[in-house]
Amino acid sequence: MPSSAALGVAPTANAPARRPARRSLSTLPFLAPSVIVLLLWMIVPLAMTLHFSFIRYNLLNPALGGFAGWSNYEFLLTDPALWTALANTLLLVGWVLVITVGLGTLLAVLFDQDFPGRGIARLLVIAPFFVMPTVSALIWKNLMMHPINGVMAFVSRSLGFTPVDWFAEFPLTSVIIIVAWQWLPFALLILLTAIQSLDHEQREAARMDGAGPVSMFVFIILPHLGRAIGVVVMIETIFLLTVFAEILVTTSGGPGLATTNLAFLIYMRALLEFDVGGASAGGVIAIVLANIVAFFLVRAIARNLAT
């Protein structure tokens, strides 16, 4: 913030401190609506999920009821489907992170260079981020990855390979490719913004000292990107933990459980099997997982807020 003196305005910096009590009191009506609705949004469903996870509750069987103790959790934790779903969730999140952050960093460096038509090329690269998930998933599943009529099948036939039946042979990999395509632009955009905030004099100085492109990348750019990469990883993790639409419209979790992640498992338990208790126990597990990530994310952002 520029100081008031620098702008030639009479110094009034001490004005807010003069009547702090009246000030904070009078702003309460401004803040209250947002705080109240968010508080309700956070507490009511959370309390209900916790409550449901400890009772017997099936929408198809009204006779069932009563306190269930830990049995919903026991049933869930001893169900192999949960562990498959957790493994799929981790594979999906992990691989998409590796692909988007790895490629995103390289592409950010590339798009930081000046070349003819860079502005338009950048628009084309970030376009996938604005495509709604159901469209991305169906376009990839049919137009791109279809084993007979898809573009990828055509390309592999032209090169003399046997076309791959993506969703039958590598279902989880196919979902990972689609989700990575959607999120690569996000990583690129954030990392590019971060690179461009790098001090030009610092880069000039490094170049003067004889730093080549590789050492420039390793010693100047990567350290500068550290925090931005951290932010990308955490925000993507929060969204990727609950990938849902892409799975629903391509594989419906199958074949078998091959593409069922935690989000899809909870959806099946709740809205296909109507087992509210079991689905809620799964929900609690999802919330705990997300909170572990959120804890670190909030800390990273809080550090930035201090300025």
């Binding site: 469903p45 959370l46 999920t49 449901f52 609950t242 909870i266 809205l271």
Partner: peptide, 12 residues
């Protein structure tokens, strides 16, 4: 509050 996963509160 943005970190709450939607599936966690789907049922309620």
């Amino acid at each position: 509050t943005k970190m709450l996963p939607p599936v966690g509160v789907l049922v309620p």
